[in-house]
Amino acid sequence: MSAAEVIKWSVFGLCVIFALIRVPDALRGRNRSVFLSLVLLALAVGLSLPPLYLAVDQLLGGVNIANLVIRLSLYAIFAILGVRTAIAFGSQRTRRIIAGPIGLAVLAITVLVTVALFVVSDLPESSTGLRAYGDQQAVQWYADMGRYYPGYVAACLLSPATGGLLDGAARPIHRICSGLMAFGFALVVVFAVASIWGPLGLFDVILPFGAIVFVTVGLTVAWISRRRSEAGSQRNLLA
């Protein structure tokens, strides 16, 4: 197994675990949106693995619709996590940039262009990551689109997440959470920008999958913090 495959399988396992530990909360109706985004993330990462991709794509007709599912899942993940993270770090401005008119327009254009490029590409047979079709211009643009929207959202979230890290009055566990997420978002931005100049070799795997690890671990740290806060009772500030 190559280094890239080891990374992908490990990250897939991590995403599945992080999604599973939130199942009981999701069943109780708590924070279903983050749960949904983790499920979509597990799905997207799973579909980057050839055995799963080929199997799922066969069910979808064998014309690489599974790849389109990955793209659209990623957009949904970033839209959901973007809004949630912005609110969590108290940045109304960032929330508006992501979920306001501009943000929604960017998302709509991204989805339309992505679907259009997918339709005009010639993709007759299942190929994980569309590797067999890398020489088509439309396929290259299609891949670029898949990095731009996440890059845009991650860039918006960098400042609030970094603010959470640098906030000396915050709980240490929340500073850890902010720091992990900030680093993950930074990786997404670096990946989106660096890819403009062409393939990055192994970093094409390390950057995005590293980002997933940092962001999901950050989310799980927040989850642990909430669990711990429920274990202890509310403090009486006047006692």
């Binding site: 949630r84 969590a88 929340h174 913090s225």
Partner: peptide
């Protein structure tokens, strides 16, 4: 100050936790 901190904690718990 404590309430302010509590509100920020709660925002993280409710949105990410």
């Amino acid at each position: 100050r404590q309430e302010h901190g509590n509100n920020r904690d709660r925002a993280i718990w409710e949105n990410l936790g």
